[in-house]
Design a protein around this nucleic acid. Structure first.
Lengths: 187, 187, 187, 187
DNA sequence: CATGAATGAGGTTTCATTCAT
DNA sequence: AATGAATGAAACCTCATTCAT
């Protein structure tokens, strides 16, 4: 028998992300995915039980990616300023480097019918542990974690999505935002 | 008859928003809309040229609504604290009161194919003028407007979307967020 | 608006019966039906909610037809011999005249998955009343109705389905069967 | 290995019959059969050339089973009453014991496309010989064999298929039917 | 012998839109 | 203006079968 082809699954994923970005969810059909991936529509169903499961699987693969990246760059011996700077920069440049997958996950998390049965995105515990450690050491103000993450992530999303494309002004905005967040969260 | 028409158009809009929330974009078809609105599919095409135009029209009607509401509550004789508190509270409770239309517009603004030909959401000039006025009077720190709005709006979105449903903890989170934003934006 | 076309519905029914007879249930697809009826597959769904409902509807239309025909020919002033002769002959020639619809209904009643939700065929009350009347008058032996119908109908089915096509021998067989049944059911 | 093969083929057959009963012909696919039989779809094609041949093979295996059973129980030294009683009872209880295979064969024999190339069911010669023997001895009335079999088999089918499930009334109906048939066929 | 991967063909159904009244 | 009928195109998915191991 033939063995399952990782390349093939990868090309399905790429096709999904490309199409979602270009044409949105409705506009991304199995046959279009298959055509772009260079396989038969029927083959998709060897790798995924149905369209919904396929979307969820790909979503969950990418949804946590950014947190994993951040996690790798963050350690407990950073200053508070460094901690915030790294998180914000990493998040910002992740979006810029991965506009496609980022848009994909954003669309997904705004579509209630797709999210059904799909764990809503949670910040990994280990990252919350780091926050706790900085709070205990009196570096980070003792705000609720929900609010801290809302401040670390969402404003960055806003400026990344509205990015002008002019590198100089983008950098200035990001630079300023880092300062604002540092001032608001550090003692 | 003028009245009749307006009623019909209104019932189309309501049907669209209800269906989008319940079943997402795919899952919202002309015939379902027509059935829910109590009219014939063909009648939809008397009011809108096609589906896309219909969606865009409804989107634009609701996208600015929240800013209009905020604008009405904001005047130049508020203290900085009041200004920020009002914007944040109004935005938060708008989302809570209008989850349906809010989700609709959020989905829309994340779907590239729908947004085509549809002005991306911009904060109205009058609101930017108010920011300028507070900056000039030395009340608001002179950050870039992009960043100020990113801070006034996006963290609130985050906490509104993650709302637990328990009023007490929701209120505490919101209360704290207001304080944080006040501290970070006011001199 | 266009009005629903009875001709169209009739041609759908004919197509269904023809195809079922030629190729069985599996082998009778909506698109084949539509092609044979000269309409679009989508149009079928204007007349029937889905395939199952379509099949059931057509089945129920024809399943009772034979009983209606028998009913019209049967009155209470017949002798016992005449009663049985008429029922058997009518049933036999109905099958011969309507092989297509008969086969259709037979297949249907043997397919458990199709019958689900479809009243199993029952002999109409009025016919049962006639049996009762003949029993009360001491013409028909007082057997259970289930058994009487099993004898009036099923052996005829057998010989109609195995019909050789040679009219002379077919007639002789039928003639003999009438005698047998008369002898077994009449006092 | 011989044993292994036979087991596999048997498990295919069981899967087919189970699925046919549960979900009808359409609804019984090679892959479902394979899954239920615990083998690969491709393996089915080692045992059968294609789906049609598989169905026919299984049909022919079971179609004659009931006659074989009857044959074993019938000998020439029975009285006429016993002969008829035994045939009717054996047939009835065969259906009750083997509803699955019985339904399978019934469906098959009503589906023209499946029957193609498949000998239509004929009563085995040896059983016809027995009828002849009883006729010659003046026990059985000299009706045509077609009619005798139509009376021995088809009314029983009717009452077995309409079985109420209440053993007492079922038994009474069967008991009565035996008497009727005995009276109508015996001198 | 046995397998899971692969697929073209086709299944049922819904879609956005137009037609005829 | 308003409608239900009508439809070509396309949606998702399964099928019987073959391929490569």
């Amino acid at each position: 028998m033939r063995t399952k082809d990782d390349e093939k699954q990868k090309s399905i994923k790429n096709a999904v992300i490309k199409l979602i970005l270009e044409r949105g969810f409705h506009g991304t059909s199995i046959s279009k995915i298959a055509k772009l991936a260079g396989i038969s529509p029927a083959t998709v169903y060897i790798y995924y039980e149905n369209k919904e499961e396929m979307m969820r699987d790909i979503y969950e693969e990418y949804a946590y990616e950014v947190f994993e990246i951040i996690q790798k760059r963050v350690t407990s011996n950073l200053t508070g300023e460094q901690l915030i700077e790294i998180i914000l920069y990493e998040y910002y440049y992740y979006i810029m480097r991965n506009r496609e997958t980022f848009h994909f996950t954003e669309q997904f998390s705004n579509c209630p019918s797709l999210q059904k049965g799909c764990n809503t995105l949670k910040v990994p515990t280990s990252l919350n542990n780091i926050l706790s450690s900085y709070k205990e050491r009196g570096i980070l103000i003792d705000y609720k974690n929900e609010n801290i993450w809302a401040l670390l992530i969402y404003p960055i999303k806003a400026i990344a999505l509205n990015s002008t494309g002019y590198e100089i002004s983008d950098k200035a905005i990001l630079r300023e935002m880092v300062t604002i967040i540092q001032n608001s969260l550090l003692l």
